[in-house]
Amino acid sequence: MEQLPRPPSSSPSSPSSLGCFLAHPLWVGASVSFAVGFALGIVAFVLRWLSGNISLIDLLSRSHLPCPLEVIGRGGCGEVYKAVLLYRDRAVPVAIKKIVQPPANAAQLCRDDSKMLHHRTRQIRSEIMTVGRMRHPNLLRLLAHLPQPRCHYLVYEYMPHGSLHDVMKRGSPPLDWPCRLKIALGVAAGLEYLHTVHRPKVIHRDLKPGNILLDGDLKPRIADFGLAKLVPGDAISGPMNSNNVAGTLGYIAPEYYQTLSYTEKSDVYSFGVILAALVTGRFPLDEFFQQTDEMWVIGWVRAALQSEDPTAAIDRKLVGKGFEEQMLLVLKIACFCTYDDPNERPSSRDARHMLAQIKH
């Protein structure tokens, strides 16, 4: 078990010492924050039990744990498990992503030239370099990175409701409009932090409902930073270039798809599509849009807003509750965020400000 790498400093800390761990700059000030302190307890537990080269699978199957591993997701990089750890007689759920890849510790991952790394290793590196070092209530926290001989384990906070996409698809728990608006505001706040507060700036590149997780109170956390890019200080202005398109069809900004160049405005485009999904209850690849003249969600939304009955674009489950005016305003913001010209799109900060001005 290793600590997540901290920003450059003059002396490394010992991962075997809980005292040194608590003094790690990554966690300075944790005692004044209940949430940070709670996460520290989880990671300290993992550190304690994994310090002797104990396999994570062996650890999580030991009798002192109340239940075995539960698979809660599968993706291109591997499986995601739910585990319940006992810490001071308290059951603490965590989510563990297993990525099969040759071993490398966090320091090596962050030091090596990313061009020389396997794509899965680059994703691990990206997670460590972003959410492994950032703290914001609307970002999913990476608690620990555990390299093993044949794979890596990334340990996160557990989000009981899963993704926004899954919640909207299954309709449980139900999301009324005030809840959806709060989700939109939370995602906007997380995006603003990535783009304008944190340095170096972070571009997520795969923002979508499937990568927005909901906690027990249905508060959103932006997750899956495997494709995220840190923007160097000398590239604060101007686009970044990529060798291939990363992201999910339907949420990829047109300039990125066409030119392989992206900026934070590419994330804003994706956010606009998410706003449209929250209001309409539909996703870009839904078969519904194949039967429309526009063939895509944003074109359909713009046509609806210009029609005699713009409320036709609103999710039928939300109609008649008295929030139609608010929802139409959010659809207009979605249209602003998805302009073809990235220079015409608002910043993530401006988008959040516009949403915050809607009475709720």
Rank of each mutant, 00 (worst) to 15 (best):
F289E: 01
P173L: 05
F336I: 06
R90I: 12
E2K: 09
R6C: 11
D340R: 13
A303P: 01
V32L: 10
G41M: 10
S61E: 13
P68A: 07
R74N: 07
P239R: 07
P200L: 12
G247C: 07
P7F: 14
G132N: 04
S63Y: 07
D176M: 08
V36P: 00
F45R: 13
I212T: 07
V202Y: 01
I99K: 06
R221V: 01
S31K: 11
V32T: 11
L140I: 08
C20E: 14
G247L: 06
R221K: 15
G238F: 05
L329R: 14
Y257E: 12
L18T: 10
D315L: 06
I314F: 05
L164H: 02
L191M: 15
R135W: 11
R141F: 01
Q101H: 11
D206H: 06
A304N: 04
R150K: 13
W49H: 13
G247P: 06
A106G: 15
Q148E: 15
E79M: 11
P174W: 00
I128T: 03
D234N: 15
A253L: 07
P220K: 06
G322N: 09
P254I: 09
Y256N: 03
K201L: 15
W296L: 05
R111E: 11
Q290L: 13
L86E: 12
K317S: 11
V231E: 05
R349F: 09
P310T: 08
I314S: 04
K82S: 05
T311M: 09
Y81L: 08
T130Y: 04
M159F: 02
P209G: 04
R6P: 00
T196C: 14
G162I: 10
K265W: 00
D234P: 00
G132S: 06
D112T: 14
S14P: 01
D89R: 13
Q258E: 14
Q123T: 08
V80G: 01
T259G: 02
V46I: 15
P7Q: 14
R302Y: 01
H145T: 00
N53C: 10
R221S: 06
A107F: 08
A312D: 09
L18C: 05
K321N: 09
G132K: 03
V92I: 14
F38D: 13
H198L: 10
L249R: 10
E192Y: 04
C20S: 13
K219T: 13
M354L: 15
R282Y: 02
T292W: 05
Q123R: 14
H119V: 12
E324V: 07
P342Y: 05
F271C: 05
C179A: 13
P8K: 12
R282M: 12
Q258M: 14
R133M: 09
L164A: 04
K169I: 10
S33F: 07
M168H: 02
L194F: 07
H118Q: 11
A351R: 00
L109K: 03
I212G: 04
K201Y: 00
V330D: 02
R205I: 15
C179I: 14
L331D: 00
V273P: 05
I333P: 01
I333F: 02
K115F: 08
R122F: 07
G132W: 03
S163N: 02
L65P: 00
R133P: 00
C337T: 04
